[in-house]
Design a protein around this nucleic acid. Structure first.
Length: 559
RNA sequence: UGGGGCGUAGCCAAGUGGUAAGGCAUCGGCCUUUGGAGCCGACAUUCGAAGGUUCGAAUCCCUCCGCCCCAGCCA
């Protein structure tokens, strides 16, 4: 049974298989999984599910999880991606220790395996072009035809394969194919290509090879070489499993158990690496780490914590049913984490000037604010208060609707941690109708936010002192797509034109030199993260991670 | 029409012959110096559908329906 450290983790069908294997001693008590990305793009939240699953299983069952780059297609792979993948896996909180492998490390061994297959009469060199191969493969309902090269002798195949390796033939001129069954209902078994000629430099092996093994051949044998016990992959590889079984059994090598699960889909976003790459290349987003991207680095820059992503991955479960998780659930997970751990602060996104008429012109007072009501050990801080302050435009209305209980003519509200103020007047721009400033009086008896006479005020609003606040650029992010499933059809037509809104805000003094990547809750507004790249001492820039839940917005929406 | 999978609430997801967990969302209410957080309550007479077996079925059998994946020298 798994050892539960602090909390009981939910079970799933994979854990049950492992429980069972441990009980029957199928793998001698070992559990060794692996996370096998191809370094051809940045990792996204879907990969996070797989990372958390594979490393999580290893942790839970006191086993190991390897990191292995499946780098068999040098035309698409780059070192930049290798580096970003390592950074992201580490950031998520997982460690492969000394077990970072590359399929390209196994190229020599893989070549030998291919030779062995040829010697056993189980593989042949085929001269068919890509088009010819497609034509003879058959269709979903019709069997394929045997290649005219299928019955070459072992000697001829050995010679040809060797010459392929030496670079005697052009790209695409020949392939090495497994000799299986051109009539199989499973297309993967119709003499699949296992080696192709590709005169391209590899990011790790340079120009050593001009033939590269295909994924199917490489992947199962890499797992075998690493003595993986549970080879966990996504559903689409379910019908590759018979091929893997064939390779492994024909070669008579160590045979891991493959288990397939459903990949993650998230509403309002895309998980296709190809489409994400297009968003980057076409500059629809600022890069792989644009805070609107579902990439790990995008979420990181947006302010998500590794804890929240791990929690999310654990809570969505693991099953074989195709599913799309509501983006709101990811937001729930990050709110839950940030609520407990993050420092609260005052920030006014859309400032409206408020003059407190009866407050002394030159007086500056200090009020004490709690840094985190969820964790009093985080202490308190001092906020400067003065005659002119900024409040949120939304927190004042000339003609408020019924349930509105913020500031309005004649109404009294509490300035959080400061004073009760009552609106006595306002100045409106005659041309635009815009409210320029609001005039209030304050009750000196209510310092700190409570009144000696015990009278109640409905609303509490946030504020900053005009003389002390600092300007901040704030980036308000929303879904990149305005439809739940942008993956269906042409995703570009669903781009949300309002996915980024930049606003000049006024924030409390302590944020003037906010550390890059520091996370904050702006009271009553949301969670924000100082941008890791653009924030500067004296010129802070914040990304909105997620809003706070807003029941007033709901009331407004309902009308 | 071949092969491989999958159908439990709006969205995830437990349950594997003994009478439908939990979470998100939603809707009420309480509380509140964040309309935050928290708390309480509601939310599947039914498990894709129809038959059958059984004292008893989401679970077993049968038939049907729906959805996903596969025809790269991509992974």
């Amino acid at each position: 049974m798994p050892e539960n450290n602090e909390i009981t983790l939910p079970s799933n069908f994979i854990k049950k298989i492992i429980d069972d294997d441990l009980l029957t001693n199928k793998w001698g008590g070992r559990v060794n999984t692996r996370f096998p990305p191809e370094p051809n793009g940045y990792l996204h939240i879907g990969h996070a599910k797989s990372i958390c699953l594979n490393f999580g299983l290893a942790n839970e069952f006191k086993g190991l999880c390897n990191l292995r780059f499946d780098d068999t297609n040098p035309s698409k792979e780059e070192t930049e991606y290798v580096e970003s993948i390592m950074e992201d896996v580490h950031w998520l909180g997982f460690d492969w220790q000394d077990r970072c492998y590359y399929a390209s490390d196994y190229f020599d061994k893989l070549y030998d395996y291919a030779v062995q297959l040829i010697k056993d009469g189980k593989a042949y060199v085929c001269d068919l072009s890509a088009d010819e191969m497609r034509e003879t493969r058959g269709t979903l309902t019709e069997p394929g035809q045997n290649s005219p090269f299928r019955n070459r002798t072992v000697e001829e195949n050995l010679d040809l394969f060797e010459r392929m390796k030496k670079g005697e033939f052009e790209d695409g001129a020949k392939t090495l194919r497994a000799k299986i069954d051109m009539t199989s209902g499973n297309l993967n078994m119709r003499d699949p290509v296992i080696y192709r000629i590709l005169k391209v430099d590899h990011h790790r092996t340079g120009d050593k090879w001009c033939i590269y093994p295909m994924y199917d051949f490489t992947h199962c044998l890499s797992d075998s070489i690493e003595h993986i016990t549970h080879s966990i992959c996504t559903l689409e590889f379910e019908d590759h499993r018979p091929l893997y079984d064939w390779f492994l059994d024909e070669l008579g090598v160590y045979h891991p158990q493959q288990i397939e699960f459903a990949r993650l889909n998230l509403s309002y976003t895309l998980m296709s690496k190809r489409k994400l790459l297009a968003l980057v290349e076409e500059k629809i987003v600022s890069g792989w780490d644009d805070p609107r991207m579902p990439t790990i680095c995008g979420l990181r820059r947006r302010g998500y914590t590794p804890e929240s992503i791990r929690d999310f991955a654990e809570r969505i479960g693991v099953a074989k049913k195709d599913s799309t998780v509501d983006f709101a659930f990811l937001e729930h997970c990050i709110r839950e984490d940030l609520n407990k751990h993050v420092h609260r602060v005052m920030g006014v996104l859309n400032p409206l000037k408020v003059v407190i008429d009866n407050y002394p012109d030159d007086l500056i007072e200090e009020v004490e604010a709690i840094n985190n009501p969820e964790d009093l050990s985080m202490g308190t801080r001092i906020l400067p208060f003065s005659k002119v302050i900024y409040i949120e435009k939304d927190d004042f209305m000339i003609d408020p609707p019924k349930k509105y209980y913020r500031l309005a003519p004649g109404r009294e509200v509490r300035l959080r941690y400061a004073y009760y103020i009552k609106c006595v007047d306002f100045v409106k721009d005659d041309d635009t109708g815009e409210i320029k400033e609001v005039h209030c009086t304050y009750d000196p008896e209510t310092k700190g936010g409570s009144s000696p006479d015990g009278r109640k005020v409905q609303g509490t609003i946030h504020w900053v002192s005009a003389a002390h606040c600092v300007d901040a650029e704030i980036r308000l992010y929303d879904h990149l797509f305005n439809t739940e499933n942008p993956g269906e059809g042409d995703y570009k037509q669903y781009l949300n034109p309002n996915s980024l809104e930049v606003v000049d805000a006024k924030v409390e003094p302590m944020l003037e030199n906010a550390e890059p990547s520091s996370r904050w809750q702006f009271e009553r507004v949301g969670y924000f993260c100082a941008d890791s790249k653009d924030t500067q001492p004296g010129k802070p820039v914040f990304n909105r991670t997620v809003t706070l839940k807003d029941t007033w917005a709901k009331i407004v929406k309902k009308g």
